[in-house]
C-alpha cells in the first residue's frame, strides 16, 4: 500500500454552508463539500462524465448534482445515483482545531498529472 497524506485545507468556514469548493492537492483536484447537516465530504473534483466542476454543483445532505448535465453522486462514497460511473471519494474530517483535513493518495506516486482546467 502507498502512504496516504493528510492535507490541511484550512478552516471549515472557507466553504459556505451547503456548498462545495475546489482545492488542488498537488495536481489532484478535489471538491470538498460542507452540507447543511454539518458533515464534510471530498470527491474527485472533475465529473467522470465530461469533466464538469462538481464543486459548483447543487448539494444536499447526501448527494451532489453535477452542474453540467445532472449526473448525481453520493457524497459518502462517490457512487453514481444518476449517471454511468462513480467518482472517487476521499476521507475527510474536521479537526479539533476547526480545520479540514483531506486524506488522499500521495500525489507524487499517484501518477495523475495536473488535471485540465480553465485556468
Amino acid at each position: 500500500m502507498r502512504l496516504v497524506d493528510e492535507t490541511c485545507i484550512g478552516a471549515l468556514e472557507r466553504i459556505p454552508v451547503g456548498e462545495g469548493r475546489e482545492v488542488d492537492l498537488g495536481g489532484l483536484l478535489v471538491a470538498v463539500f460542507r452540507t447543511r447537516s454539518g458533515s464534510v465530504h471530498a470527491l474527485e473534483a472533475r465529473c467522470p462524465h465530461r469533466g464538469g466542476p462538481l464543486a459548483d454543483g447543487l448539494v444536499d445532505s447526501t448527494s451532489v448534482v453535477c452542474p453540467l448535465h445532472g449526473w448525481r453522486f453520493r457524497l459518502q462514497d462517490g457512487a453514481a445515483l444518476v449517471g454511468d460511473s462513480p467518482t472517487r471519494s476521499f476521507a475527510v474530517r474536521e479537526g479539533d482545531d476547526g480545520n479540514i483535513y483531506v486524506r488522499c493518495p500521495a500525489p507524487a506516486s499517484d501518477g495523475l498529472g495536473p488535471a485540465e482546467s480553465p485556468d
Partner: peptide, 13 residues
C-alpha cells in the same frame, strides 16, 4: 456574500 464566492480553487494552506 459567501466565502470564496468567486474563487476558482481555494489555495491549500
Amino acid at each position: 456574500v459567501t466565502p470564496n464566492q468567486f474563487v476558482r480553487r481555494i489555495p491549500v494552506k
